[in-house]
Design a protein around this nucleic acid. Structure first.
Length: 195
DNA sequence: CAATTGATGGACT
DNA sequence: GTCCATCAATTGA
């Protein structure tokens, strides 16, 4: 399983491009002392920083929580939502573009290690659920996803045959025009895409 | 459909 | 510094 790690360059380019190309890549996570879990990314959403009302860094807003968005691409941005759930984002562009790609759904590939878990049963078809399955918390905020030593990294996978663009989810409150922007992408026909 | 949940950030003193 | 409305979701009827 010596797959190639995605280099930091991969993330330092147009956010929408990253959102599309992240589909099919393999998110890997150290779990506990001696287990690695692997998941195929099947659904993403792009958040376009300064000009995107639904983005935490809209209009250049810069607060403690949002700090990782201002890192160079390839870092993680994890935040807590509704007091219970975590959401995992991948920061894109360089430090001048506080943009990110939200990972919305994963397809469990399997688990290696002493504590091999029944991953296939795990629900990963939603941004909150997937973080629970990966054991992701704010501990994982600001990690470098292009280094295995982070405990959370992304390896090269196979691009999906067909990508479907769609409206983003859960941002109705921000009104038009951003509600209609086709910034959500998922693999056509994949059963693990969120509902 | 409504309840849940607590960190966050803006408004305020 | 404190207060409080807000929330990129999920669960259970």
């Amino acid at each position: 399983m010596a797959k190639k790690l995605l280099a930091q360059d991969f993330y330092i380019r147009d956010t929408v491009e990253v959102a599309r190309r992240l589909l099919g890549q393999v998110l890997c996570c150290r779990f506990g002392d001696d287990e690695t879990r692997r998941f195929r990314i099947v659904e993403t959403e792009a958040y376009l920083g300064l000009g995107d009302p639904a983005c935490h860094s809209y209009h250049g807003k810069r607060t403690e929580r949002v700090r990782p968005l201002y890192l160079d691409g390839g870092h993680s941005y994890v935040y807590l939502i509704y007091g219970i759930y975590h959401c995992l984002n991948v920061v894109t562009g360089d430090a001048s573009t506080p943009e990110a790609v939200l990972i919305r759904a994963l397809e469990p590939l399997g688990s290696e290690g002493r504590h091999r878990a029944a991953l296939k049963k795990m629900e990963t078809n939603g941004p909150g659920k997937l973080c629970r399955a990966l054991g992701i918390t704010r501990e994982h905020n600001g990690r470098a996803l292009f280094k295995k030593s982070s405990g959370l990294w992304i390896e090269e996978g196979e691009a999906p045959e067909s990508i479907v663009p769609a409206k983003r989810v859960g941002i109705e409150g921000y009104g038009e025009p951003c509600v209609s922007w086709p910034l959500r992408f998922y693999e056509a026909g994949n059963p693990y895409v969120s509902r």
